[in-house]
């Protein structure tokens, strides 16, 4: 199991690759997926510490993946990135428990801080779990 694996789901190859490179430059391991369906079938569902997720995607979109994971009891913190500055999407994403909602373009620092806080949230969950154990 990879520690602090960051999974990127975006249908745009360029965005996917660029985002992955940036995350790796932060020092985190990263995995890239073209669609929500591919991510769900990848087997990385349980070792992903943070999910960087695009809103607009063919097939299952970001919000649908979020509700699907929630319904499955999977509490991976999700950082949404979106080209559409939509209050509606942002509101729905945050209400559904998203760790962050980043509108494009965003700076590397913004992403790094967002991922770090998401990971802390994730680790706190983990530590809580460990404490309970």
């Amino acid at each position: 199991m990879t520690e602090n694996l960051i999974s990127v789901v975006d249908d745009d190859e360029s965005v996917r690759r660029t985002t992955t490179l940036l995350i790796e430059s932060f020092g985190f391991p990263a995995a890239a997926f073209e669609s929500a369906e591919l991510f769900l079938r990848s087997g990385h569902l349980h070792d992903t510490s943070c999910l960087v997720l695009d809103v607009q995607m063919p097939g299952m979109n970001g919000l649908q993946l979020q509700s699907h994971l929630a319904a499955a009891g999977c509490g991976i913190p999700i950082v949404f990135i979106s080209g559409y500055e939509s209050k509606d999407f942002r509101q729905r994403a945050v209400q559904a428990g998203a760790a962050a909602f980043l509108g494009k373009p965003f700076s590397d620092e913004q992403l790094l801080q967002t991922i770090r806080s998401a990971l802390r949230f994730s680790h706190r969950d983990d530590s809580l779990g460990q404490i309970e154990e």
Partner: peptide
């Protein structure tokens, strides 16, 4: 989309 890519790539 491309603007975001530029910023991200430059930062990377």
């Amino acid at each position: 989309q491309p603007l975001s890519g530029i910023i991200t790539n430059a930062s990377t």
